[in-house]
Amino acid sequence: MLDAFSKAVVAADASTSVVGDIGKLKQFVAEGNRRLDAVNAIASNASCMVSDAVAGMICENQGLIQAGGNCYPNRRMAACLRDGEIILRYVSYALLAGDASVLDDRCLNGLKETYAALGVPTTSTVRAVQIMKAQAAAHIADNPSEARAGAKLRKMGTPVVNDRCASLVAEASSYFDRVIAALS
């Protein structure tokens, strides 16, 4: 498992040179608190994100909860929710580390083959991951509008500044895209 610092070291060692790009790491350090806010935004809303994503996936494909569907008895529905949480958890680790290696090594490696063997439809899984990606972007940016949220408007209150963590939203999205790419 690597993080942003050890990734720089491993890359430099491959060419037996010193780590030259310290500026990028300093930026990682300078933006550290925002990164932690982003991880916290995902971790604190995890169960809500997972259940909403699975509910949305089923809403669009009712066949999943009919007899013979992959979410049909509660046992399989529970497995589905558990898998959603596992994927989201590894994405939160990758976001904390600033590197995708933990997600690749411990979650995505062999996931597609496992799902194929178990008969899990990956198109549905991908849809749930896409919903979680949108949710993560919204929670990290933490900038809900009156127009959309209405009476349910709620802010996490993280002290983000005006660019609303655009780079972290992009980074988190890239990890979700990695999951989608690994499954399809």
Partner: peptide, 25 residues
Amino acid sequence: MKSVVTTVIAAADAAGRFPSTSDLE
């Protein structure tokens, strides 16, 4: 490669939980 971040993540993963407040701290 061991660092504070990877140690924290490895511990959280072993327990199967999201990064907690103390992890982030």
